[in-house]
Design a protein around this nucleic acid. Structure first.
Lengths: 229, 229
DNA sequence: ACAAAAGTGTTTCGGCTACACCCATGC
DNA sequence: GCATGGGTGTAGCCGAAACACTTTTGT
């Protein structure tokens, strides 16, 4: 069955990143406008080729760093896309990843230089190749993650209110959640710590800020949102 | 950021298959004994290289066909493994997949020729490279799938009893499940159909055989086993 | 009749839902 | 005071867990 290496073909390997951000009760994606041929002017995910000595994860991190100037971004593998005609230029096998970043914590100049623009996820432009499928698969994976770990550290500011967290969940799952029940469920996980200051922008009373307690916020929990009814 | 294709390296791309089977209340893996150097005589997952014109899924299907003689095997992508030193022979990026097959439905000669042997998952031999990590990741993915769809079509015979199905779930999740509650939960999904014949091997009374109703057995359901307590 | 496994019923408990209600504050 | 959003309380319901109980049949 097996043959020596040199009898087998080699492939271009690329990494495409579905970069999620959150602002004003809506999920956003960071897309970029291709400033080179082919398909110049069209919208695409951030991507690049895997180099000789790096892992897929390192390649994705490198690409994110080039565009955002940020290191240690949360990254998760989604799926391999390998249809041989997916990229008309050449046979390229691509590994889709998704990343979570705080939209405010970024160097605007850097991504402006790259032609990167945040798009609300409900109104995405047309994307090249199979990038739209990558977005769909990445969103599913994000939903799953959000359901089994308390997400938000990566997408929200250091301090956030329970209301902001609920809005984030509503944006991720595209459904409305009962405010009282959501609060109780989240607080029962005991991973958030209430701070003394309040966010007064939303009301006169003000809403307490919370932050993640320790770094054990990655602890797995039973599902937060019941998806199938 | 982007450069033309020809400035980027190409990579060997392989596919490794974690092949699950089920027999006698235990999950098994189909492993093979390398009959070629390097590492001749050591145990490994089934694998092979992705060819020029095939997708990753096709490559995995082809490899499974070579070993089992079966087509249309259930296959699911697990994860990409890309550490540059994972295969000491060369830099090979590998995509782990898992497959589900019925252990009885197979051509023994075919896999004997390939040096393939079923191992109970509790007593696996040492595996080469990072194949052990692949098994772990595949099992997690299988657990997730089994929790959200009624699995078994791929692993059990056409006809099976609820008791067999429960044993399968106990093998997958490595825990014991209350027999009455499991039965009620499964039947409430309304995807199984009771047949008129019984399995008399386990008791004098006999246990009714069931089979999957239509092909909508892939319907998603709320979690069957609560994992986090 | 008895044993043993298959299958059903029943009780209890906890958590989730829905919604009503209190709280704090700026105007 | 009262409108507004933040936050808490609660009754009811549903499903899951635990386990007792019934059924079937070979010996």
């Amino acid at each position: 069955m097996q043959q020596p290496f040199y009898n087998h073909p080699k492939h271009f390997l690329s990494v495409d990143c579905v970069i999620f951000g959150y602002r004003e009760s809506e999920l956003h994606l960071l897309l970029y406008n291709r400033n080179f041929e082919p398909l110049k002017g069209q919208w695409s995910l951030m991507g690049g080729f895997v180099q000789e000595s790096e892992t897929v994860e390192e390649a994705a991190g490198r690409i994110l760093y080039q565009i955002t100037g940020l290191k240690d971004i949360y990254l998760d593998q989604v799926q391999v896309f390998s249809k041989s005609d997916r990229d008309p230029g050449a046979r390229v096998v691509s590994i889709a990843n998704y990343a979570l970043i705080r939209m405010d914590f970024n160097d605007k100049d850097l991504w402006n230089d790259h032609g990167a623009v945040w798009w609300p996820i409900q109104q995405l432009p047309e994307l090249i190749f199979d990038h739209r499928d990558m977005v769909t698969a990445a969103l599913e994976k994000l939903q799953h993650k959000a359901n089994y770990t308390l997400i938000g550290q990566e997408l929200l500011p250091e301090q956030f209110t329970i209301i902001q967290l609920r809005s984030l969940y509503e944006a991720i799952f595209q459904c409305s959640l009962d405010s009282g029940n959501f609060r109780k469920r989240i607080l029962s996980l005991k991973v958030l710590e209430r701070l003394d200051n309040k966010d007064k922008t939303g009301s006169k009373k003000g809403a307490y800020y919370y932050k993640y307690k320790t770094n054990d916020a990655t602890a797995k929990v039973d599902r937060i949102v019941r998806l199938i009814l």
